[in-house]
Amino acid sequence: MIDVENLSVRFRDIEAVKSVSFRVPHGGSLGIVGESGSGKSTILRALAGLNADWTGRMAVDGVPLVPRRDRAFFRRVQMVFQDPYGSLHPRQTVDQALSEPLAVHGIPDGEARVRRALDEVALPGTIRFRYPHQLSGGQRQRVAIARALMTEPEVLLLDEPTSALDVSVQAEILNLLADLQRRRDLTSIMVSHNLAVVAHLCPTIAVMQLGEIVEMLSTDDLRAGRTTHPHTTALRALSVELQES
């Protein structure tokens, strides 16, 4: 479903992503882990069409991606960002935020769709006319996810979707994402610095360091400690040491 070949992204003299290649099959989900500056979010942004300055080859469902995407692309590929407070318009109600993608893409039947979307992310109908500042962090992230799903995309790009949340809320959002993935047959890529979070949602994991994918492995291999690159081994050791006492 998603094919990336020799993708490179430069910011002036810095090569943030260095000739990265990977594939995500239809209905699959790939996790990308790495530290700040490793290039993981840059890949996602290039894929989402938020950064036109890249070289290489990218395709979604066999259709090659060009730097400037058309409207159909944004209908099929949606993104959820780390901080829902930053990604939701402060002066738009939940209802407006969810209706906007429908208006942009000329999707009819708004009223019913908004209600269904709230239902799907387990938000009560009572929050429909509230503003982002009147919601909790978890509710805001649910709104952001609902908004991404409004256009019924086939691909969902998740950039640290739970890093700004409390751990109990993180669990709820991770369950919701796992559930949506199954129900909607979504193809997804999730970026996070938290190995355990990525392993929970994705069966395959790409480990990045300094702009390169240094290892691609299955979550089972990661859990069992069958890592080959020292950076993966170190990240895994740290996750096990600090989080499991």
Binding site: V167, S168, Q170, A171, E172, L174, N175, A178, D179, L195, A196, V197, A199, H200, T219, L222, R223, R236, S239, V240, Q243, E244
Partner: peptide, 20 residues
Amino acid sequence: RGLLNCLPALSRPQPSLPVM
């Protein structure tokens, strides 16, 4: 207990996380 259980962990895969 809830705070501890709701964390995903590498050593214990689970289909869904316990919710508080």
